[in-house]
Design a binder for these strands. Structure first.
Length: 359
DNA sequence: AAGCCGGGGAG
DNA sequence: CTCCCAGGCTT
């Protein structure tokens, strides 16, 4: 038996039962593929169910607001996926008149759809014989053939792509692609691969060399950036005694774009409150140091992302309503119930609900 | 080509 | 702690 036959025999007997499998619905497969970009299946499944429940088809997704879509995506990360998904739903409805494109070339032109997602959707739904290369597939191929190609470079990716094109079963392209990913996730794992259970173990060159850990070749990882976020949870009361807090929509090209957080003063290093309260940004909001009151403990939290570590502090500030004219111009006043319904980064969710302080 | 974009689970 | 996950976009 050749590579593909062994792989597919194994797949038929061992494939994972996943909610979007055996579906010929391009919308469902598309959503699942985008949710699973850089995201483990176990983490994505709950989001998949909630997303399809809220937006069962492309029309409902296109009809939603971006805020609603981001709110459903909250906690999953890489939020451009949600923004692009929403934008692309509207584009499909406009240009394709509700019908999805059927070729990977057309899919590639959609926002948020790259080589992997285009190939995955069209191979699974439309049986296009094009390989879908994700992290699992690079690892399986690199080990099986002891390939020295760097998967972080375009040249390296091209080598993997050409090989996969040779291997893919044109009769079952979707199953081939999913089988490669299942094998990578279940057997040919990044560390501690289960070679004894692998259907390819008799032909795997990395196993013969006992060198699975050397594959695939990748770029060395970069240093993590350190950032210092000083947040101010500014609250006030209206004449009826109802509490409002001031928030902001992040519109810069930075993390968490188009999601909501508290008024933020970012500094290049850890900065004591006395210094923050003399900062021009703060003095602009509160020229008079008696116009605000700091209450409660300062909440602190270290939030680690893949590429940056955020040292966050949350200062709780109370402001008398007569001193909120400028705040109302710069920020958005919401009550706590409204705030709960808005799309927030994980860090904000944690700071908001934190009890006491941590250092 | 390199930099940027989240959060979480496994070891 | 480190690694990396059904990647894609911007510069």
């Amino acid at each position: 038996m050749n590579f593909s036959d062994r792989l597919l025999v194994w797949y038929d007997a061992n494939k994972r039962a996943l909610p979007w499998r055996d579906s010929d619905n391009p919308y469902k497969v598309w959503i699942s593929e985008v949710i699973l970009q850089q995201t483990r299946v176990e983490q994505g499944i709950a989001y998949y169910f909630r997303f399809l429940d809220a937006f069962p088809d492309v029309i409902s997704l296109a009809s939603a607001s971006e805020d609603e879509v981001l709110r459903l995506w909250q906690g999953l990360g890489y939020y451009s996926r949600a923004r692009n998904l929403h934008q692309t739903a509207r584009e499909i409805l406009e240009k394709h008149g509700k019908n999805f494109p059927e070729s990977s070339e057309e899919w590639m032109r959609l926002k948020g759809v790259g080589p992997y997602t285009a190939a995955a959707v069209t191979s699974i739904v439309f049986k296009e014989a094009i390989p879908a290369l994700d992290g699992n597939v690079y690892r399986v191929l690199a080990r099986a053939f002891a390939l020295p190609y760097n998967m972080d470079t375009s040249k390296g990716k091209k080598q993997f792509y050409q090989l996969a094109t040779q291997l893919i079963d044109p009769k079952r392209p979707g199953d081939f692609n999913q089988a490669m990913m299942d094998l990578g996730a279940m057997i040919c794992k990044p560390s501690g691969p289960l070679c004894l259970k692998c259907p390819l173990n008799t032909l795997c060159l990395a196993k013969q060399q006992n060198a699975a850990k050397n594959y695939p070749v990748r770029n060395p990882k970069k240093a993590v950036r350190e950032r210092f976020f000083n947040y101010f949870k500014i609250t006030t009361k209206d004449p009826q005694g109802k509490i409002f807090l001031f928030i902001k929509k992040r519109q810069e090209n930075d993390i968490w774009k188009n999601m909501y957080d508290f008024p933020l003063l970012e500094t290049t290093e850890d900065t004591p409150p006395e210094t923050l309260f003399k900062h021009p940004w703060w003095l602009h909001l509160f020229p008079d140091e008696k116009s605000f009151l700091m209450e409660g403990q300062v909440r602190q939290r270290v939030h680690k992302l893949t590429h940056q570590t955020i040292h966050a502090k949350l200062f709780q500030i109370f402001v008398h309503p007569e001193n909120t004219v400028l705040l109302n111009k710069i920020f958005i006043a919401v009550d706590f119930d409204q705030f709960e319904q808005m799309a927030k980064p994980r860090l904000i969710e944690l700071l908001h609900w934190d009890r006491g302080e941590k250092s």
